[in-house]
Amino acid sequence: MKDASPAKPYALHLGVIILLFALSFVLPDYHHGLLARIMVLAVFAMGYNMLFGYVGLLSLGHAMFFSAGLYGAGLAVIHLGWSVPAAFAAGILCGALLALVIGVLALRTSGVAFMIVTMMFAQVFYLVILYFASWTGGDQGMVVPQPARVLVLGSTSLDLTSPTVRYTSALALFSIVLLITLAIVRSRYGRVLVAIRENEERTKMLGYDTFSNKLVAVVVSGTICATSGAAYALLFGYVGSSFASVQYSILPLLWVLLGGAATTLGPLIGTLFMYYVVDITSGFTSAYLLIVGIALILLVLFFPKGILGSIRQRWLGWLP
């Protein structure tokens, strides 16, 4: 947390957003579509990073927040026929409430116990989705009907299934969340979080209520992840239990570690990297997971703090 002038980081982030916007005009169709998906999932990773990167709490259960948003939004459309904005809000609210409950329980623990407790709650959430299969579609999942995925704003209506609208919505979501995280990280509250990460006892002695600070962080993190899930359901039209499985709890951890924990842009870089490694290698060999595995190990050997984390450490100390 260097006290550099705020101009540089904000300029960088605006630059990234402008670059992503410009890319939407030049990218070939396929990469255009893929990048829209990556931006939505990068939001998931940013939510994870809030807690893991800045507070140092390693959760293995964030798939439940993502899928709370996914199901909250998706089922509201499917069963209740809600409009897109209402369903989106419902998804976010589901995630926030779940995060509050889980936070109150899980924050009684710390370290590895926190990791296991969150993993088990996520497992419960996953099983609950399977148990109520008549509403959730169980493991098969459900399709959010295409006609319902239209955003009506006054007299104009935006079809969320059109690639341009989808890209723009994903970018808007990504940008808003990016700027919010940047603001949080640079705020006084953000510094308290880092202080908790570095030394919780000392922070407590300095008079901070670490529990409620951490609880807020869990809720913020869960809400961001749920936002990503809700957007995923509405933009891509499918809700399914595989998004609640432990694999989807490990993925954001992986993305964040690859990109650089506690860096605001790291989640995007990590998600982007992982997607393209899989996409490119699967074009050359059917044994692509082997190459992905080797790539991960090489990366971590040479960039132990993740891509951006290592860059910050070596060259650009001011990176937020």
Binding site: D139, G141, T161, G237, Y238, S242
Partner: peptide, 13 residues
């Protein structure tokens, strides 16, 4: 089945 259902919206769009 879950892959079919997950992929169907993309095919339709």
């Amino acid at each position: 089945s879950h892959v079919v259902i997950g992929s169907a919206p993309a095919a339709g769009e």
